[in-house]
Design a protein around this nucleic acid. Structure first.
Lengths: 371, 371
DNA sequence: AACAACTCTGCAAACGTTTGGCCTGGACGC
DNA sequence: GCGTCCAGGCCAAACGTTTGCAGAGTTGTT
């Protein structure tokens, strides 16, 4: 049997309550007893039983993480951030991976609820009502999503898109494609909106290519769609998709950035490891994890003061080798109204695989995005 | 306040102990009371307080994971396996990332110890004595490592190496390099030994290139060393390094597999996403995670029967595009004793960056590996 | 010198479960 | 009809802490 607080008390010749105080509220006992108790506890190798402590205090000193897929490299990075900050604050983390099943996530949160003080929820697709009911259950911080009064850490999606678009614009691109993510995802929605605004403002054409699972394989499809849509640049929902795009373009013999420029989102570690290295909207994911913990801990430990509920982190376009000058020369297309000059590279794609027609939507100035 | 077992008892008109039994040992109460209690509990939304339960039973229904770096893509995959199997068995997982600091890991295990029933330890570099003392602390399963009586899940490293080497041999390679991992790592030691044996047996020359952190950046260095060593094939400690090798070779204009073949270890998701797709010794990491949990759970729930302590999982060489025919023609070199014909590609590397001379060891038939 | 104020420590209750032992009532065998 | 046995349920103790309250001792004030 492990040594208990009573063993320490007996050995030190004091009462259990004194031991408890000496260890957790040192300022409540005299210097001499504190010293004595601490030495004795040390000597006996006493470790407080967390179950007993949390039974009486109701505090677990644990925080939970719920996320859709640890296989997506953004999440390990967020988790690392959460982990390290949590440890700094004396918390352990419980991890729960929903395997991309948003409908199962409430159950995961409920399971966690009884053994954590709060959870960091990365759930781009959980319904808002579920989210609210989860927030009613226990302290919650969501990542990359905002729902009225629930604390959140988000990235400045619009600014990231803005940077990406103006980068492409500066390189002469006038017709770009958007390889969209999951339909109901928060970032998807934000980015799409920002994209419509940014392209409209710069007089660029935007080709919206479907909704896809945020995976490598989706990128393969996106690449073909982009080629058939004759865009000269493509922005992908995330890096996995962008890598898929690069892969497929390479396989089809399309030069990047020579013929098509590619931009991703997230800046996962691999983005810089491929050829050509991927230009991407970098999200400081580890920092986001830490920020989420900071928010959660301040919520838990000083519930009276309400700090800013939402924390917005900046995005930074990481320019690497997958973006370059547009071959087609500058100038917005809609000025002439004619289909723009297709290079050999792009002509080559005519008749390429077409997925479903409804996966392609064109947005132009004439069809402005809703505010 | 949450509803307690007593609330349920009162509402159902039975005692608390009956409620407890009806819920956790249903066969101990009559059908009618069980029905009644379960309905009442359901109706009141009763959720047992795990702290109270674990205080009395000593069981937490949690398992811990300690690993060196969630940023290395093998680990998320192992964690997913652990997670899903743990959930199937009614356990939650606590995650602890040591940030590649083996000396900090015992402390992490100790912290976890008080709130888990056992831990899965992925610690390639913790000292054996630390490992033993951890095993004395609580039930433990180690992954990819064997220490006498500690349960473990390992891969058949030797067989993986064997497959990789004979693959290269079949393609005509006679002089291959080994981009080694961390010096004290278990797999490093096993693989190196297997490599020496396999090459010796096939009459191939082995160029052992240093000890490196298992990272992409290490691969960059390895590539240069390999070129200067005039090998035609390289096996890397893991895929991250192998990707680094590919990257650097590409940057230096060396064709893969035209001039050099590259093999990695792990089969991380990205291995198949790069150009050329990486041939690699695939480890079924998710399966390893599940196996570790199976081992741990059987240890926890039936401590009397001792199942096989070590579980060995097979490796499978995943042949992709990064390996190909050797340009230098077949035939072992030691038959002639002459340095083999260097192609233009390899000559190009003469005088290339040399790191430290002691980072290069040559092993030939004349210098057989210790058993 | 008496009293007040304060510091330090001990006592005991409480947290919400599980579980061994005991009690009750009914079924069954003789 | 009486004794035995057993299923089903209740009581109470226990798990290891924390914490409100009260008491003891010490110091300071009038």
């Amino acid at each position: 049997m492990a040594t208990t607080i009573r063993d320490v008390a007996r050995a030190a010749g004091v009462s259990a309550s004194t031991v408890s105080r000496a260890l957790s509220n040192p300022e409540m006992v005299s210097d001499s007893t504190r010293e004595l108790v601490q030495r004795t506890a040390q000597r006996l190798g006493y470790r407080p039983n967390p179950a007993a402590r949390r039974l009486i205090t109701g505090r677990t000193q644990n925080i939970g993480i719920v996320l859709p897929d640890l296989g997506n490299p953004v999440f390990p990075s967020i988790v690392k951030g959460i982990q390290s900050r949590a440890r700094e604050n004396g918390y352990c983390v419980l991890l729960s991976d929903s395997d991309e099943d948003p409908s199962g996530e409430p159950a995961l949160v409920r399971t966690l609820a009884s053994q954590v003080d709060g959870v960091v929820l990365c759930s781009p697709r959980m319904s808002t009502e579920d989210l609210r009911s989860m927030a009613g259950l226990l302290p919650l911080v969501v990542v990359q999503r905002t729902v009225d009064h629930i604390p959140a850490v988000v990235f400045d999606n619009a600014d990231g898109i803005q940077q990406a678009v103006s980068h492409l614009h500066a390189l002469g691109h006038r017709r770009i494609a958007w390889g969209g993510g999951p339909e109901r995802s928060y970032s998807q929605e934000r980015r799409t909106r920002a994209l419509r605004e940014a392209t409209a403002q710069l007089g660029m054409e935007l080709l919206e290519v479907g909704h896809f699972a945020p995976r490598f394989s989706s990128g393969l499809m996106v690449a073909d769609l982009v080629l058939s849509g004759e865009a000269t640049g493509v922005i992908a929902y995330n890096d996995l998709m962008a890598l898929g795009v690069l892969h497929r373009l390479h396989a089809r013999g399309v030069a990047v950035p020579g013929e098509i420029s590619v931009i991703g989102h997230d800046d996962i570690p691999f983005a810089g490891m491929v050829h050509p290295a991927l230009t991407t909207v970098a999200l400081s994911t580890e920092r986001a994890g830490r920020a989420a913990v900071d928010l959660l801990v301040s919520l838990l430990e000083s519930p009276d003061q309400t700090p800013g509920l939402h924390r917005t982190l900046p995005c930074e376009l990481q320019i690497r080798a997958s973006t370059g000058l547009c071959r087609c020369g500058p100038g917005p297309l809609h000025e002439t109204g004619a289909p723009h000059e297709t290079t050999g590279a792009i002509r080559r794609t005519t008749g390429a695989i077409r997925r479903t027609t409804e996966a392609i939507h064109r947005t132009t100035d004439a069809d402005p995005a809703p505010a």
